[in-house]
Design a protein around this nucleic acid. Structure first.
Length: 557
RNA sequence: UGGGGUGUCGCCAAGUGGCAAGGCACCGGGUUUUGAUCCCGGCAUUCGUAGGUUCGAAUCCUACCACCCCAGCCA
């Protein structure tokens, strides 16, 4: 696929910085907060940050922005690292933690206080909100704004020492309560939180806010281009203000891009967490989740996700990408790389009455129609087979290209057969179809010139294997489930998962390795489940169906 | 009504004064032992709107309109 990442505005910025000598080596970073699993939106950021470093011969750090211990945990730290690695990226040096810089941040807080650039404020949250003003009215100065340097120093040390209650005091930057930018109205730098931190234990009872941490982390690490999403644009003046007022070692610059929005998908962390907590999905890695872990379990490949990120580009406008693009990326990858196999989801027995009971023939089928390097597999052909019930009709018009009573169809990789009779149970339901093989049709058209109407997949009834196949579909039926606060729950697709316990697969598929992807011909792309699949109890997840212009056209025969 | 952004085909997106790339989707046709893939063809006289500058504008200027973000001691 032509996904040559063209040029985006960041390429231009960086190329200019390099050319002008403002930057020697590009350093970027992917800075997740470990408070949830990574999702497809993060994948865009990961591809961007690591991709930029790769493209310009620089480095990209993985840094946990762990400044809010209440919502964070080691589970997320582990999962995030695994996801980044799985996507195929390796961060420069060790994993970094904002919490590792807490002592430095505190020193810098003292620095601001000494320069009268910060003060300890005793307003509670509600009062602070009142003093902050509104979007259209300026705020008012806090009554604690003019405390002496000495008093502020003393108070800040005592905040750290744990002498004050949570919420009773904060450290604030002294900037401008009348600024039209709310972020500049004496933003909070430190708050008191008497909770243990997953990295620093109980060493701290005050924690820096995002604003007082992020730019400084970047500066410490020598990040040259700090790339974040559009909603942080208003924070840039504060980011720059702190860099200017602190004796930081380097001067990183912040750039913003538009975050990824996907239709039929929810990416709000809160909503994703609710889907997990309320048991609507089986976990963060449920194959229906747009998380990296979920997509992995669904059968997406790292390459397909990276291709997708290249396809959608990077700009400063916010749009909604059609999930069809993501689907195209994975279909394209699997079409060229996944071995083929045959699977019958809704079995209907076919008895080839012209063959003896003991008939057994081992056919060889190419694993891929055009990739000879993928080799072949053996497929046993026997008297009794299963085909999909949808692939047989007693009568149909000429548009129906499958098996019809009295007509012929080609069994994929095998013979042409002709249906001769239907067998019914007492209730009149069709329970089997009798058919005969047309001699000499292995690799050839029938000698009598009567060509088969179509090609269908099949599995030997005596040698095929039973398998559990999970048919996944989009989780939401609404194009914009993320809209509103909780409307998404009303748009849940009741058919997002259909489990087929009685599917039949050709023997070779049972030997699949977990996470191995296949195309089940005429059905779609499937992956052996990462956790549940075994040779004894095969479990496959449908990654995505084949493009189906027949069904899409609403055709019927 | 304060500040910060964004507006190019149904969706994403190139384009940076010289006469609208590409991808997705869609619609035709061909090949095909997957109604898949692949191949060929079609798909913006027009760039949020209205004026203006210019030989020439999506690109410059002016005004207007629409949408997104900001009033967490979240990130």
């Amino acid at each position: 696929m032509d996904t040559k990442p063209g040029n985006n505005f960041l390429h231009t910025v960086i190329a200019d910085d390099l050319a002008a000598g403002r930057v020697q080596t590009v350093v970027t970073r992917f800075p997740p907060e470990p408070n949830g699993y990574l999702h497809v939106g993060h994948a865009k950021s990961i591809c961007l940050n690591f991709g930029l470093a790769e493209r310009f011969g620089g480095h990209c750090h993985l840094r946990f922005d762990d400044t809010n211990p209440e919502k964070e945990s080691q589970e997320f730290i582990d999962a995030i690292q695994e996801d980044v690695r799985w996507l195929g990226y390796q961060w420069a040096g060790d994993v970094r933690f904002a919490s590792a810089y807490f002592e430095q941040f505190f020193d810098w807080a003292l620095h601001l206080v000494r320069n009268a650039d910060a003060y300890v404020c005793d307003l509670n949250a509600e009062q602070a909100r009142e003093y902050r003003g509104t979007l259209t009215e300026p705020g008012r100065n806090s009554p604690f704004r003019s405390r002496s340097v000495e008093e502020n120093l003393d108070l800040l040390q005592r905040m750290r020492a744990g002498e004050f209650e949570e919420g009773s005091r904060v450290l604030r930057a002294r900037i401008d309560m009348a600024s039209p930018n709310m972020n500049m109205r004496d933003p909070i730098l430190y708050r008191i939180r008497k909770v243990p931190h997953h990295q620093t234990g109980d060493a701290w009872v005050i924690y820096p806010t995002y604003d007082f941490a992020h730019g400084q982390e970047d500066a410490i690490e020598g990040v040259t281009h700090s790339i974040c999403t559009l909603e942080f644009e208003d924070h840039r003046p504060l980011y720059d203000w702190l860099i200017e007022h602190l004796p930081v070692p380097t001067r990183p610059r912040q750039y913003e891009f538009g975050r990824l929005n996907l239709n039929y998908t929810v990416t709000s962390k809160r909503k994703l967490k609710a889907l997990v907590d309320e048991g609507i999905v089986s976990g963060w890695d449920d194959p229906r989740m747009p998380t990296i872990a979920g997509m992995r379990r669904r059968g997406f490949t790292p390459a397909s996700i990276r291709t997708f990120c290249d396809m959608i580009g990077v700009t400063r406008s916010d749009g909604v990408v059609d999930v069809a693009m993501l689907e195209h990326a994975i279909r394209d990858d699997l079409n060229t790389n996944a071995p083929r196999g045959m699977c019958v989801l809704n079995p209907l027995k076919v008895i080839l009455t012209d063959l003896p009971e003991t008939h057994r023939e081992v056919l060889t089928a190419a694993s891929h129609p055009s990739r000879e390097d993928l080799g072949s597999r053996e497929v046993p052909f026997t008297r009794e087979l299963y085909i999909d019930a949808d692939d047989f009709r007693e009568e149909a018009n000429k548009k129906y290209k499958r098996l019809v009573l009295g007509k012929r169809v080609r069994l994929r990789n095998a013979y042409v057969i002709e249906a001769t009779e239907v067998v019914r149970d007492e209730a009149g339901e069709i329970i089997a179809v009798h058919a005969r093989t047309i001699p000499g049709t292995l690799g050839n058209d029938p000698a009598d010139g009567v060509k088969p109407k179509g090609v269908i997949q099949w599995v030997s009834a005596s040698e095929g294997r039973r398998a559990t196949v999970r048919l996944y579909d989009r989780l939401f039926t609404h194009e914009a489930p993320d809209r509103g606060d909780n409307a998404y729950l009303e748009w849940l697709n009741p058919e997002s998962l259909r489990v087929v316990e009685g599917a039949w697969i050709e023997p070779a598929l049972a030997a699949a390795r977990p996470e191995q992807g296949f195309q089940f011909e005429r059905e779609g792309y499937f992956v052996a489940d990462r956790y549940d699949h075994t040779a004894e109890n095969p479990v496959f997840n449908r990654t995505i169906g084949l493009r189906d212009t027949w069904a899409a056209a609403g055709e019927d025969a």
